[in-house]
Amino acid sequence: SHLLVVEPEKIYAMPDPTMPDGDVKALTTLCDLADRELVVIIGWAKHIPGFATLSLADQMSLLQSAWMEILVLSIVFRSLPCDDEIVYAEDYVVDEEQARISGLLDLHVAIVPLVRRYKKLRMEKEEFVMLKAIALANSDSMHIENIEAVQKLQDSLHEALQDFEASQHPEDPRRVGKLLMTLPLLRQTATKAVQHFYSIKMQGKVPMHKLFLEMLEAKA
């Protein structure tokens, strides 16, 4: 219930109406959106019970490794009510054809299977907020100082998910496992997304804000 309360407000892509349509515009819009989402994600992480008591270095390590998984999972959750459309933001919904013409097809094709997976599970908002926090705590950063403290955070989030499923889905005792078994595909999708944006950064045609660049470089 705490995670539901601290869930961030909706965010808008606000594509620049003066820019000509095309891949540069689409990618500029997404990079700007991602930069603003990162600020929100960092603020959100601080509200996860147990996160703020980790050392600053460990907080940074977890976020540097999990930020794209958190971003992707948020996009996927917003896209659940749609049919093969990706809801990057409330005002930026892209179908396959639009993705093709705006240079977002690789990203689109990478995200759709994850949307289908969570649709099949009928993932609920409570499950989404817990999985997002679990993705952060379980980010497998190689630079963690206090492994025990991070393990404790993972355990408390895992326990919250188990408690929720025991009370809300007693008919499916394997639901926690089914949800956790989606995490490899989430990581795989996030890895593809990072590679996609890293190659865009290397091409240098799309402006990127400093925080987004900093987080991309941390994954390089």
Binding site: V39, I42, G43, K46, L56, A57, Q59, M60, L63, Q64, K210, L211, E214, M215, E217, A218
Partner: peptide, 15 residues
């Protein structure tokens, strides 16, 4: 930490 200035700053901000 110097390399990750913005993340560091945002985490240190109390808001």
């Amino acid at each position: 930490k110097e390399k990750h200035k913005i993340l560091h700053q945002l985490l240190q901000n109390s808001t």
